[in-house]
Design a protein around this nucleic acid. Sequence first.
DNA 1: TTGTAAGCGTTATCAT
DNA 2: ATGATAACGCTTACAA
Lengths: 333, 333
Amino acid sequence: MTSKDVARVAGVSQSTVSYVMSGKRPISARTRRIVEDAMAQLTYQPNAGARALASQRTQIVAVVMPFDSGLGAAGLMAFIEEITLAARAHDHDVLLVTAEEGVDGLRRVAGRALCDAVVVMEVGSDDPRAAIARDLRVPTLFIGIPDDPAGLHCVDFDFEDGARLLVAELADRQRVTALAWGSDTVARHLNYVPRFRAAAQEAAEAAGVALDWVPLERATVEEQVRAVLAAGADALLVTAHLTRVVHAVQDAGLRPGTDLDLVALATDVDATGFTVPLTAVSTHPRDVSRQAMSWLFDLLERGSGPAQVRRVPASVSRRSSVRSGPTPRVPRP
Amino acid sequence: MTSKDVARVAGVSQSTVSYVMSGKRPISARTRRIVEDAMAQLTYQPNAGARALASQRTQIVAVVMPFDSGLGAAGLMAFIEEITLAARAHDHDVLLVTAEEGVDGLRRVAGRALCDAVVVMEVGSDDPRAAIARDLRVPTLFIGIPDDPAGLHCVDFDFEDGARLLVAELADRQRVTALAWGSDTVARHLNYVPRFRAAAQEAAEAAGVALDWVPLERATVEEQVRAVLAAGADALLVTAHLTRVVHAVQDAGLRPGTDLDLVALATDVDATGFTVPLTAVSTHPRDVSRQAMSWLFDLLERGSGPAQVRRVPASVSRRSSVRSGPTPRVPRP
DNA sequence: TTGTAAGCGTTATCAT
DNA sequence: ATGATAACGCTTACAA
């Protein structure tokens, strides 16, 4: 079934069929009805390739996946779900590109006109994909902020703000241990690590709390937690390997909120998945992707706007993993 | 840049450029070099829409996501990764379709010629998508087995086999409690639930063990586990909500492998993510998707083959959550 | 308000 | 071994 068939059955020209679909020119009510009937009768569906060729629009958004989900599989799925949802709401489909393809993946989907736009997840500090994005055929939106975001469209969670909020929750402690991202994450040059760290450090100093920074290594999480606990730590700020950390704590016979304080940077689901719901700053993966997609379609519809960096604000959810309750000493700027 | 430009620069006809790319007719070494140089010089990339229109092949595989990952987010991501990997290995891309679109999603991607094939994940017993797949324009591969798989290409983990293996691990116990999928999963009519249950029941009877079936409800997992434990259960077979179950058990002061036996149906990562590594039957999500994709490309390349159901064999990994060690009394058929 | 026809960038069938 | 050229199915000026 082609639009030609529809035209023949409806007794109109092919262009009329096209205009009925696109609404790009006025059609009499009568003609519209006839055409729509014909389409229904033939169960006509426009050919995507032909349409893309003629219109120079594919109605497809390419999404470049992260190498390894910093947010965990659940967070990643939330991202993807939200992205496809937004895409469908704008009559677009989602094409998946693996991070492994690297720069070539971007070149391919843009160069072959496989998509109208691309979203790149988890961009690193000196991400080579950022460099080439500047002269890509299609608008590109980054999730994460490279060191030089000039000329780029970037959306990210406000890690600095999150760090401050988290420290504020433990501001009346003498000493806080930050169980944070390890060398694997650092190796990927995700600059939210230094961003978060710097902000946390600054906030801690302002509040007069000593902040010990412990990078958690995948292979030794439990061991490290035990060591930290053995050393007497009783205020934990965790940003990585949350599940394993909490279990290690519990295995040590300690309960967050009773025997020690624990705050986390985590998604809401993750923070509430334990027997003790955790006080946490949520990274709001869904908000980030919603923000990204709405911006993307803005660019697509209203033409490419000015490059900028947009941060999704942080917020803390107080639950029961902090003993004394909230007594923040650090004012939020 | 179009192939016309390449042809001009290379001083050959457009068709020669096309044949250099496709290899569908002999090209002299000299001509090939000239053309390839021109392509490189212009950084030419063929237009996907035009190619799809002319060749009737999009080089795209549509993947219909599950409603709610029965395997958990991690398992789902494994699926997706494996699928995109396989697709790229065959020079195809992956288009994501949400389960929410239901039957219409299938009709859309097939009808508009957005893809050459489709993979449907997590199909239910009387999945309406199965019905329409039979007369879809493109080969369709189901992950999961509907009640009437006639005329369909289905791949699934062998849940029956998995059930038997799991029961065998606890075959010398008097009484085993199965903490299994709850009403939400059942409501989705995933027929691996009854398939698993029937096989487990049969194996249990053969082995002379009493099998108590407890459907775990999302809202009350911990409560149910406590109740079961309080009732004296000391041999658990869990197929759902694994993390929460294990934590509930530990919170009750019990250690799997020490105070009670626990075997699970889970991915390997999930089974080893606890302080006590669990004896488990792995659902091998990666194997399932690899199997599915290799079959799919067989169909695509060698033309649509005969419909059938293919099961990915189960296997048990003995770890340390069972006390007496493996003493299976139930022979594997 | 509607129709005609020229592309869009490939592939593939004839020729040569 | 290579070159013309007619599709492929749609969109969109340009006419009427």
